[in-house]
């Protein structure tokens, strides 16, 4: 039963929610606004109305081609995600449907690896990459990002699979389904929403990853996160250009996120919303 909430309380909460949302969103909004300013405007001080020049975008494109890092980003984000799913689906499946005494411990151990700062393993990984020729290659980044996100992917899938009641699978078996039919008609339709949410969230995580991509690439395999970084150092700071680069880098993922909102919310709440 929903409790009756007074109109005043409702308005209060609505305003509060908008304020918080705007606060969180404001840095992104201001980045977009700044990208439409000239460099002079950009350093002139706080101003919400830009002159709507596309100058920065042009300069960014001529100085540092956008297509290549964009392609790298797509390949690295999608590639590492698919690879992670290929490894994680069977793992999470086994842990959800055939748990042993150690299952919880293994899951906790996997999660604990995320508690260590990435920089702690930078040197060994850097050396491994140097020695194996993976440095500044897309395949190298696909592998490292896959490994970095694997614990989260396994956890998410495990949580989803756990929600599929074992009795439903048994019912299918009683109804005469073979293992193949059970997978096609019952398992897959029930697992797909969870897998889709995991896939989307992981693509976003991989797309925005900036530590390993910057450390382990120079030019060839650099994705958009490294592309942004390349505008923040050499010849001092050019705010408008940096903003234009950032906007270009986040636009694709923002658009994808917008179109897959529903799946994403499910993903972020780890299946809590039914």
């Amino acid at each position: 039963m929903a409790r009756a909430v007074s109109t005043q309380t409702k308005i209060g909460w609505t305003i509060a929610a908008w304020v918080v949302a705007l606060l969180i969103f404001f840095p992104i909004l201001y980045t977009v606004i700044t990208s439409f300013k000239t460099e002079q405007e950009a350093i002139a001080g706080f101003d919400l109305i830009p002159s709507f020049t596309l100058q920065s975008y042009g300069e960014v494109q001529t100085q540092n081609d956008y297509i290549r890092p964009f392609t790298n980003s797509v390949i690295i984000a999608v590639g590492s995600t698919i690879l992670a799913l290929i490894v994680a689906i069977p793992a999470a499946w086994a842990m959800a449907f055939a748990p042993t005494k150690q299952t919880k411990n293994i899951l906790m151990w996997m999660l604990s690896t995320k508690m260590m700062p990435a920089v702690a393993v930078l040197v060994p990984i850097y050396l491994i990459f140097l020695n194996t020729g993976l440095m500044d290659t897309r395949i190298g980044l696909v592998i490292i990002l896959m490994l970095m996100n694997l614990p989260i992917v396994v956890w998410m899938l495990y949580t989803y699979f756990r929600e599929i009641p074992g009795e439903i699978l048994e019912a299918a078996r009683m109804d005469g389904a073979t293992l193949g039919q059970e997978i096609v008609h019952v398992l897959t339709p029930m697992a797909v929403p969870g897998i889709a949410s995991t896939l989307l969230l992981n693509i976003i995580l991989a797309w925005n990853e900036a530590f390993w991509t910057i450390q382990l690439t120079t030019t060839n395999a650099a994705p958009l996160s490294a592309f942004i970084a390349s505008f923040s150092s050499p010849q001092g700071l050019f705010w408008a250009k940096l903003s234009a680069a950032s906007t270009m880098a986040i636009a694709p993922i923002l658009i994808m996120g917008w179109f897959s909102q529903k799946q994403l919310v499910r993903g972020l709440t780890f299946g809590a919303v039914k």
């Binding site: 439903i168 009683m174 073979t178």
Partner: peptide, 20 residues
């Protein structure tokens, strides 16, 4: 023999209907 081969039908406590 596996469950499919026995020709029995089962009704579960949780109903176990296919939600999709």
């Amino acid at each position: 023999a596996g469950p499919a081969k026995r020709g029995l039908a089962m009704v579960f406590q949780s109903y176990a209907l296919y939600p999709h």
